[in-house]
Amino acid sequence: MAEVLVVVEHSGGAAKKITSELLTAARALGEPSAVVFGAAGDADKLKDTLGEYGAQKIYAAESADVTDYLVAPRAEVLAGLVKQASPAAVLLASTTDGKEIAGRLAVKIESGFLTGVTELAADGTATQVVFAGAVIVKSKVTKGTPILTIATNAVTAEPAAATPSVEAVEVSVSDAAKKAKVADRVSEKKSSRPELTEASIVVSGGRGVGSAENFALIEGLADSLGAAVGASRAAVDSDFYPPPHQFQVGQTGKTVSPNLYVAVGISGAIQHRAGMQTSKTIVAINKDEEAPIFELADFGVVGDLFKVVPQATEAINARKG
């Protein structure tokens, strides 16, 4: 069976959730070979998790030349691996980095690429949800080695134990790929809540929340559910929950697809729906019974969020009691 290259998403050797989803998706096409970009030792730290989800082989590209520059070196190393391994496909996470690497790689190896894939069939047919969730498209790469970026939370990760061998990749990056230097990485994370795009539950607040202080209500409900906190564009534009890009759910923000999405004081403009429409279960609280968000909601409460949210939070905490 042909190899399928899977670019591992991780943070200092700890795999992100999407990595197990990528390995699961890859198994439909062939034998997953994980590609680890990182610092020395990262591949070893990741080995158990990657094996758990079926990685037969790990390519360890551990070098400052890869981590110190934006995107381009990773595309270059991948192009080398494609040449060496002749894989059936290359899979990446549909993150900013993942999509940019995919695009660069497509130009380098003259292959087609598709982004934001939510489902991948054994024959390579890829499903994408486009136009703010309104249209489902099935496409196929018709030239070269298919390069596919997979949306977070779209594929259900399933373990398939394997014992991967680790192969060190000799990293030699051209000067051309070292033009954009990463001078610093800054975290603005302000809580231990799960990351928005990875979370299985998201609680978002909108204009109706009214102020930055009131967002404590949203946080309280989120914490009772172990959820991530999100915000609509109207809320971030009003500075209710900074920094904007980290929490904004919508067309120009993040796209989330959790098991449960709770929309509080959010009317449900297309801008917002684009970022949450594929959530599995949607619950809405809004005082306007005509709010478009109710068209999407599996369960909606028409009422004052300042009464409904505290009651719900208390009831959830009581159940855990």
Partner: peptide, 21 residues
């Protein structure tokens, strides 16, 4: 280098429950 095979409108969500508080 890629081809759209087919597309369709996303099936509308079944009517949910809406209750007044």
């Amino acid at each position: 280098w890629s081809e759209v095979l087919e597309f369709s409108g996303r099936p509308p969500k079944g009517a949910g429950v809406k209750v007044p508080d």
